[in-house]
Design a protein around this nucleic acid. Structure first.
Lengths: 105, 105
DNA sequence: TCTATTGTTCTACAACGTTAGAACAATAGA
DNA sequence: TCTATTGTTCTAACGTTGTAGAACAATAGA
């Protein structure tokens, strides 16, 4: 498959990151990756069609939130924790905190 | 004018907040309010038509980010700092930090 | 080589969002 | 009361987004 393109750290845009995380499905993916890094697309266990999932992952990847590593036929996903923290210190963790707090209600 | 409706603290939704802040114009408004609280709509000095500004302010208000207080013919805007911090601790400040950091580039 | 597995890309479409002009509403002040 | 000020609401145009089926691409394993 084609090698996925990831934005450079300095090209990561705040509004793009916020937009990417403003979708419940995508936020759910990010929360799962925060708990369990290096998951394959299928391991996310989401009840959405492949094409829809692929779309959401593309949005997350192109906004600089996740990294996609290809191994065989599988795509392994991980959060760009370090990059995001360098670019926007504390942003991701506060969003993840807020997300886990929201899920408790 | 009609009294504007503000969501209760517990009805403030994370994805709605992130979505509201993912628009450059709205994020700009929030940054200005963070620096200078209690501004009227006109004092924001944005180069957008009144109707467009009104739309953005409605999105910010309904997502629970800003408070609108009417005095005469003017609407005074302020961030719901405390409410947001109670609901999502540290979220707004980390976004504001990221926004000010972005503007330096 | 053939098949199953894993995702992407193409395409279409309905829903939503941003923008903005025009009309309207409410208040302050002359 | 009349007018200026300050915003809202209505309406429409236009672009964007989320969803999802169908076809396609790439690799692993038999």
């Amino acid at each position: 498959m084609k090698k996925p393109i990831h934005p450079n750290i300095n090209d990561i845009n705040l509004t793009s990151v916020l937009y990417a995380l403003s979708d419940p499905t995508r936020l759910d993916i990010v929360v799962k990756l925060a708990k369990n890094s290096d998951l394959s697309c299928g391991s996310l266990a989401l009840s959405v069609p492949k094409s829809t999932l692929s779309h959401h992952l593309k949005v997350l990847r192109e906004s600089g939130i996740i990294n996609v590593r290809i191994e065989g036929t599988q795509h392994f996903l991980s959060l760009r924790n370090n990059d995001l923290d360098i670019r926007f210190s504390g942003l991701l963790s506060s969003i993840l905190d807020a997300a886990s707090y929201s899920n408790l209600t």
